[in-house]
Amino acid sequence: MIWQLDLAILTLVIVTAVATIAVKDLLGCAILFGAYSFLMCLLWAIMAAVDVAFTEASVGAGVSTVFFVAAVFRTTRRTRD
């Protein structure tokens, strides 16, 4: 494990998490959550957990984002917080 790369991507993960819950648009929230999941996938590839990494890339960044976008299109994009 390269700790400099680990620390940099972990910082990016926290920035993306804060942006995901702070943005005032649910579609933007869904897309930022996809970015969060993909950064998490990179973090697992760094930690040598390759099986978890490709499961997260397909299930977390793929299927979860599709679920969120589908739910937002069936409901509303507007949110107050």
């Binding site: 995901t20 819950i21 969120f68 949110t79 917080d81």
Partner: peptide, 12 residues
């Protein structure tokens, strides 16, 4: 307050 935001928090 939004239900989708709560679900994002649960996943984080």
């Amino acid at each position: 307050n939004n239900l989708v935001k709560k679900l994002v928090g649960m996943n984080i």
